[in-house]
C-alpha cells in the first residue's frame, strides 16, 4: 500500500524538523500512541493502539530513522505487530521552505497483513491518512502557538 501527501505548515523548517523527532511531541501528536521511547540514537520503540474498521488492536514495534539531512530530509523504517496483524514499511519525509512556511512531503510504501488486512483492507488507507492529518494538525497548532 502506498501512502503519500503533502502539507504546508506556518513555521520554521528547523522547528518542524526538530518536533518530528521529539518523542514527547510525537506521543501527543499521533493518535493512539501509548508509549514512544528513544532506545538508540536513531531508533524508537512504540506502543500504540489503532483501530481499522471493526478491528482495534495494540501494536508494538520499532521506528528506525536513517539518511538524516537536517532540516530537510529523513527516512523512516517501521515495523510493528499486534494481535490483529502486522505492518512494515519505509517512507521518506522531505521538508521544503515555502513562502507560507514549511511544506512537508511524505511518501511511503507499507505491507499490512493479518486480520487488519483481511477485515480492514478497504479502510486502511483512509485510516492512515486520517491519522497523519490529525498528527499534522497537532504539529501545526504546536508550531504556530510558539
Amino acid at each position: 500500500m502506498r501512502i503519500n501527501g503533502e502539507y504546508v505548515i506556518k513555521g520554521a523548517r528547523e522547528k518542524v524538523y526538530e518536533l518530528l523527532q521529539d518523542p514527547d511531541f510525537l506521543t501527543k501528536a499521533i493518535p493512539g500512541v501509548q508509549r514512544l521511547e528513544r532506545t538508540g540514537n536513531d531508533t524508537y520503540e512504540v506502543t500504540m493502539k489503532a483501530s481499522v474498521g471493526p478491528i482495534s488492536s495494540t501494536f508494538t514495534g520499532t521506528v528506525q530513522i536513517s539518511e538524516q539531512r537536517p532540516p530537510e530530509f529523513y527516512r523512516l523504517t517501521i515495523q510493528g505487530h499486534g494481535a490483529a496483524g502486522f505492518v512494515r514499511g519505509t517512507g521518506t519525509v522531505t521538508l521544503v521552505e515555502v513562502p507560507e512556511g514549511t511544506k512537508i512531503v511524505y511518501e511511503g510504501e507499507t505491507d499490512v497483513g493479518g486480520r487488519i488486512a483481511q477485515v480492514g483492507q478497504r479502510l486502511i488507507q483512509s485510516v492512515a491518512r486520517k491519522m497523519i492529518n490529525d498528527g499534522l494538525k497537532v504539529l501545526e497548532a504546536v508550531v504556530s502557538g510558539q
Binding site: 505491507d111 493479518g114 488486512a117 483481511q118
Partner: peptide, 14 residues
Amino acid sequence: YDENGNLVTGTLLD
C-alpha cells in the same frame, strides 16, 4: 489474495 498472500476478501463485506 494480494501479492503478499494476504486474503483480502476475508469477510462477507468483501
